[in-house]
Design a protein around this nucleic acid. Structure first.
Lengths: 350, 350
DNA sequence: CTGTTAGCGCTTTCAT
DNA sequence: ATGAAAGCGCTAACAG
């Protein structure tokens, strides 16, 4: 039974005390360069990885953060996880991806248990959890740092990262208008996500600007899933003032529109233009490929982690796509950094 | 600064020693029922969750397992994660979902670091990591329990869970033959995954049994992604002996076939039947919906965790879909349990 | 700049 | 059936 390699082994190998090894591990100042090198050599030679358990027990940090997400939308969660993990590994921090059910009555207990069990240093909330008041209150009560991804409410009250959904939906609608469409259907997202409202707002804003009259009958409810896209398409396509284009609030619903169009023998895009939102892989797997808007999901995850690590300055040294915005909590004075790049236009695929 | 609730707080509240609380927490025997109840009441009253850090430092277990997965195929990973997590929460064990890049030269170092840092009690490997010899050797060297999901090689040498790909592919091919098809194209999966070979074998076995001659020109390489499905479809559809049905080894590639068919104006399914494999949500999002085979991905995750917890007997008390098979390591004598249910047939969707 | 000492919150071992 | 003491591997607070 070979027991684990500990900091004492490293100290012995390097000929220093364990405290010095600890200093090197934690990148503290006041270590002579040659001492540091000796220790680093010993760490490498023994391929030593310090026990997180011991570190969190003894110290103030656990070197772990939690990413809390609902169990739906695999594409979205996957992209967020990738982004968060990328930033975490740079920082030498472990990411605990925790699926939860936002509707579960035990939600708070589960998150509280997670925090108590793991001592995570911070939490990232992805939508729709990022808008759960219960969760937000609990985290605030425990004074644990957290960042919300794409919250629908109170952006400014807490640290959060999000894209400009209004502008993006405006862009897409404008794109469709430029294509000559004047009767444009719109399928809303799930009411849980406030992005839904913002996308609708962007749609209306673009119509207004172009002088195209807004017609409530052209807007249909949806829930971000294929089935609601199908239902909405059936309804919109039998509307007397039948739309020549349908803009769905996400790709899954847009795929539903495509399916209905195919079923009814409506040629896409000749007789009907179909637009989605989020640019999931799905957009390219359906036929014809969707005109869609890229949501910088991976980057949102990356930025959320960066913000959590209080390295907001890093955001300014990276070019982030579309309208990714990161805000820090109002607890800090200078906190708003808004970044844009030039690739904000809707992406048309052939 | 309210400090954390500890086992001492619980002990005080219950009027017992911390050791007794520990006994209750660990479900040890030799605790008087009324004592146990007092402790449980105190735990609930204080909503106490023990520190995993302290537990892993002091004890032999960490109450954590790692799920190691490659970064591709969101649907698949998501389903696996769900299954593993479901079983873990039943067991009161934390799941650490760890994305890795199988091609990274640091793969082994990363996994070793993960183990050292977190003291995980066990590891679940999802494909294609489940076939990485380097990883397998490292885990064996460290004598850490692990379970492989859908390994392509040496099923019997280690604990693993998998479905019967040969039978499933045979089923689908038979289904197509029953539909009257005699010229059936086949698109292989990624060579990394041994499921690819088995699916091909099932295809050939069904052809043989039905007396349909095997034609190498009807089999095309693929890589489990949309693009390779597109490429294969172009090739197969211009083959002199043009197939009336194409069976792709997964849904993404089948979606690629659909796209090509649509582009060429080939009517599906009138002129060409398209079949997929895995029954991802994608199968229902394309048009027309794919005929596909359900892979019990979530159940595989569940079973992998169950096997890891050495509760193999549980497998026998649950009805698992399709041909889910769980094997324990040859280190244990009685290890093979094969389960089937009746819903093995390919799923035809309209 | 480096070392010593005292814990962190639990489980283990050994008493009783 | 329960408790007391020791210690897991590290960091914090001091010394020097």
């Amino acid at each position: 039974m070979t027991s684990r390699t500990t900091i004492s082994d490293v100290a012995r190998a390097a000929g220093v005390s364990i405290k010095t090894v600890s200093r090197v591990l934690n990148k503290e100042r006041y270590v002579r360069p040659d001492t540091r090198e000796k220790v680093e050599a010993a760490v490498a030679a023994l391929s030593f990885s310090p026990s997180l358990a011991a570190r969190s027990l003894a110290g103030k940090r656990s070197f772990q953060i939690a990413l809390i997400h609902d169990t739906h939308s695999p594409y979205y969660i996957h992209a967020i996880q990738e982004g968060v993990w990328a930033r975490c590994r740079e920082a030498g921090v472990r990411m605990l991806a925790q699926p939860v059910d936002i509707a579960a009555p035990t939600l708070i207990a589960e998150i509280a248990g997670l925090i108590d069990e793991t001592h995570v240093d911070g939490i990232i909330l992805s939508p729709p959890i990022s808008d759960s008041l219960l969760v937000l209150h609990e985290l605030e009560r425990r004074r644990i740092p957290f960042v919300r991804i794409s919250p629908g409410t109170n952006h400014t009250l807490t640290s959060s990262v999000f894209m400009d959904d209004v502008q993006a939906a405006d862009d897409m609608t404008t794109h469709l208008i430029d294509l000559g469409h004047r009767v444009i259907g719109f399928i809303q997202g799930h009411p849980n996500h406030m992005a839904s409202e913002q996308r609708l707002f962007g749609y209306r804003r673009a119509l207004d600007r172009a002088g195209v009259p807004y017609e409530p009958g052209l807007v249909h409810a949806g829930a971000f899933d294929f089935a609601s896209g199908v239902a909405a398409a059936h309804s919109l396509l039998s509307y007397p003032h039948r739309p020549t284009a349908i803009f769905a609030s996400n790709d899954d619903m847009a795929a539903g529109v495509l399916a209905v169009a195919h079923g009814k023998g409506i040629a896409v895009p000749r007789e009907l233009s179909v637009a989605g939102f989020d640019d999931t892989p799905l957009a390219q797997l359906v036929w014809p490929p969707l005109t869609t808007i890229r949501q910088p999901t991976r980057e949102l995850g990356w930025a959320a982690a960066a913000l959590l690590f209080e390295k907001r300055d890093e955001l300014e040294h990276r070019s982030l796509p579309h309208e990714l915005v990161a805000r820090a909590s109002t607890a800090n004075p200078t906190q708003t950094s808004a970044l844009r790049d030039l690739t904000t236009k809707p992406v048309s695929r052939k």
